[in-house]
């Protein structure tokens, strides 16, 4: 569908989708934990705006509840909790990346192309004007996964995981005007619990191995050989 034939709010949703993809790339490029968390909050904010716009475009006002949940959880609560955690664990800066950063960026670009081709047949099934963004939300999920596997520190991995959840939520909003309310509330609650559990886990991991570097969980002995 040509973008010029869409209405202005729909064009804004598409632009927001592109910005969400950019924020995923920025998450991948961040080298400091606090800016990583800020970028994550920015991604949540973009998804909030997109959801509110979708609610008004489609006239499905139950989406506003999901939007409010997103605003509360992804923009304020989870980033706030993570910030609190990195202050209490005293790790402000360090994000160790496995592999060459430029190669990872190129790999992420390849993932976007891959999700475009995967989403092509799905796009034909949807009748929504924003169906083109399905590929983008899939790419956000895959890039979230890439963040999880390319980072050593547990906090960065949690941010990647949450960004995957962002992608799934965005996919639901743009392809079917959101999931049923029960499912959405359930997911929101799950995410909430996950963050609290992750917080507890961080302390346990650090108490056990003296660091948040998850690579060291692979070692069989406690003594370095």
């Amino acid at each position: 569908m040509l973008i010029a034939s869409l209405s202005l709010p729909e064009q804004v949703v598409l632009t927001l989708a592109a910005l969400i993809l950019l924020s995923s790339f920025l998450l991948l490029a961040q080298v400091r934990l606090d800016s990583l968390i800020n970028t994550f909050a920015l991604q949540g904010l973009l998804i909030f705006f997109a959801t509110v716009l979708m609610a008004f475009i489609a006239g499905k006002y139950h989406l506003l509840i999901s939007a409010a949940l997103t605003l509360f959880l992804k923009v304020f609560f989870i980033p706030g909790q993570l910030r609190l955690l990195i202050i209490r664990l005293n790790i402000r800066r360090e994000v160790e990346v496995i592999g060459n950063p430029s190669l990872i960026m190129l790999f992420a670009a390849a993932l976007v192309l891959f999700s475009y081709y995967v989403a092509l047949p799905i796009r034909e099934l949807s009748l929504l004007s924003t169906r083109n963004t399905i590929a983008i939300s899939l790419a956000v999920v895959l890039i979230g996964m890439l963040i999880v596997i390319s980072r050593r520190k547990a906090v960065a991995q949690v941010v990647g995981f949450m960004s995957m959840e962002n992608g799934l939520f965005f996919a639901a909003v743009v392809s079917t005007y959101g999931m049923p309310m029960v499912v959405e509330l359930g997911i929101a609650f799950d995410v909430l619990v996950a963050v609290i559990l992750f917080g507890v886990f961080f302390f346990h991991i650090r108490a056990e191995i003296g660091s948040l570097d998850t690579d060291r969980l692979n070692h069989l002995t406690e003594v370095e050989k």
Partner: peptide
């Protein structure tokens, strides 16, 4: 960053527009 921005521009043209 400049390259990624331009690349994203091209991809969002193909995917979205």
């Amino acid at each position: 960053l400049a390259f990624i921005l331009s690349l994203l521009g091209m991809m969002s043209h193909i995917i979205l527009e």
